[in-house]
């Protein structure tokens, strides 16, 4: 069994989602190769090797600094051919959603998007995924070779201590039909939403910049990423890149703290994979409580600042927890 992982990077570093894909290959005992495309990324071959890649196809060039479909699709095809993979794995990120189906159509291969469990068998892959905003779990089958994208948190990254051989891919011909003019810097220097171990998310009821600040302060003391509901993003309290849910990102942190979020299915579709869910809401009947491990029925404006203080004290070593 041979697996090709399509890597994603941010500021030259491989994202956690990519290491999770290697974790999958590792769990199946498969031989893993990786396509590592970007600008200033070649230094990550070691990291990939340590997480179980035996071969890394590298395309490191300034022209690949921003993701655009055409060159990445061409590189994925080249890496697929060179690796002889049975299965190509993407993260179910915005990049994976843009590139996975394009590459599938290019190669004429089956595409299973957003899988939450995958088992390669002889000659085929069987995967589970949700549809209808998380209301139905489907089991899909496809013959190999196939392409599957995995939701965040489906597999754990694991250091296995190997090392990878690297091979440079030649750069694809440029296709100037699509040009990324700029990436708007809206997200802060906080940890990436997809990589975060803790996510603190705010809803419509933060009501304005002061409320949003309470969410950000709590996130900062926890070293967490900030998430948000669609209503909160639409109201301009948080950038759209923070949105978690069916339209937004899927996250699977250790802790997800939903603050003033009702728990609409379109929101929960993006966070039910979290290990621990905490909800803070004034309405004891809010649907979010039905999936929360720990719920607090309280006004966020009272309880969030207290929580921030509590965590500050904890951090200062002055443990209040008994």
């Amino acid at each position: 069994m041979k697996v090709l992982v399509i890597a994603e990077t941010k500021q030259g570093k491989v994202k956690k989602g990519t290491l999770e894909l290697l974790g999958a290959a590792n769990a199946w005992g498969a031989e893993a190769s990786v396509l590592l495309a970007g600008a200033g990324v070649a230094g990550e071959v070691d990291t990939l090797g340590r997480h179980g890649a035996s071969k890394v196809y590298v395309a490191d060039d300034a022209s690949l600094g921003m993701y655009v479909t055409a060159p990445f699709a061409a590189l994925a095809v080249e890496a697929f051919k060179a690796s002889g993979a049975d299965l190509i794995l993407f993260a179910d990120s915005e990049l994976g959603k843009d590139l996975g189906p394009r590459v599938a159509a290019k190669l004429g291969l089956p595409f299973i998007p957003g899988a939450v469990s995958v088992a390669p068998e002889a000659g085929k892959v069987v995967a589970k995924r949700t549809s209808i905003a998380g209301k139905v779990m489907e089991t899909l089958e496809a013959p190999l070779p196939a392409i599957v994208s995995l939701k965040a948190g489906t597999f754990e990254p694991k250091e296995v201590g190997g090392s990878a051989a690297s091979e440079s891919l030649s750069l694809p011909q440029s296709d100037l039909r699509t040009i990324v003019r700029e990436v708007l810097k809206e997200t802060s220097e906080r940890v990436d939403l997809g990589d975060a171990r803790i996510v603190v998310a705010g809803g419509r009821s933060v009501r304005g910049p002061e409320g949003a600040k309470l969410i950000e302060d709590l996130a900062d003391v926890l070293g967490a990423a900030v998430g948000a509901s669609r209503a909160a993003c639409d109201s301009g309290y948080f950038p759209h890149a923070c949105q978690v849910g069916q339209t937004g990102r899927t996250v699977a942190p250790d802790v997800y703290i939903a603050i003033g979020i009702s728990g609409a299915i379109q929101h929960t579709a993006g966070m039910t994979g979290s290990k621990v869910i905490v909800a803070i809401n004034t309405d004891p009947d809010a649907p979010i409580f039905s999936i929360a491990d720990f719920g607090i029925v309280a006004d966020l404006f009272t309880v969030v600042p207290l929580l921030t203080e509590e965590f500050k004290r904890l951090k200062a070593g002055n443990t209040v927890a008994v």
Binding site: L95, T178, A241
Partner: peptide, 11 residues
């Protein structure tokens, strides 16, 4: 909306 924020893209 991309993974790292909004992108201005011409096509």
């Amino acid at each position: 909306v991309g993974d790292d924020g909004r992108e201005v893209v011409s096509v």
